[in-house]
C-alpha cells in the first residue's frame, strides 16, 4: 500500500428528494506517471490511482478511468442526483492492488 494515501470527500449532509448536489473528492497520492527518471536515469515505475467510482445506495453516479496525466492528489468534482436518504460510497483503485474507500451519508428531508 502506497504511503500517506488519504481520501477526502465533501458531500452535503442534507438534501431534498431528487435534488442535484455537488460532490468534491480528493485523494492524497503521488500519481507517479511512469515517465519520470530517477537520479541514475532509470524510469520510475508507474504507480497511480487508475479507477475512481462513486455509488449511491448501490447505483452508480460516476466512474473515472485515470491515466498518468492526472495531477498529484487526484481531484474530482461532479454532480449527483439524490432520490432518497442513503450512503455514498467512494472507491479508488491503486496500481499496486490497494483499494481505498470512503463513505458519506446524506439525509433526505
Amino acid at each position: 500500500m502506497a504511503k500517506g494515501v488519504k481520501p477526502r470527500v465533501k458531500v452535503p449532509k442534507k438534501a431534498t428528494a431528487g435534488e442535484v448536489i455537488t460532490i468534491k473528492t480528493l485523494i492524497s497520492h503521488k500519481m507517479e506517471s511512469g515517465q519520470r527518471k530517477d537520479k541514475d536515469g532509470n524510469i520510475i515505475p508507474r504507480s497511480i490511482i487508475n479507477t475512481f467510482t462513486c455509488d449511491f445506495n448501490g447505483q452508480n453516479v460516476i466512474s473515472v478511468e485515470l491515466h498518468g496525466a492526472v495531477s498529484t492528489n487526484p481531484y474530482f468534482q461532479f454532480e449527483a442526483k439524490v432520490p432518497e436518504s442513503g450512503e455514498f460510497v467512494f472507491t479508488w483503485l491503486d496500481d499496486d492492488g490497494s483499494t481505498y474507500t470512503d463513505k458519506k451519508s446524506i439525509t433526505v428531508a
Binding site: 452508480n60 460516476i62 473515472v64 487526484p74 481531484y75 461532479f78 439524490v82
Partner: peptide
C-alpha cells in the same frame, strides 16, 4: 468520465 444512472449532470472537473 462515465456517467451512471444517478449522475446529476454530464459535467465533471479535474486537474
Amino acid at each position: 468520465f462515465t456517467f451512471g444512472p444517478l449522475a446529476g449532470s454530464q459535467e465533471a472537473s479535474s486537474r
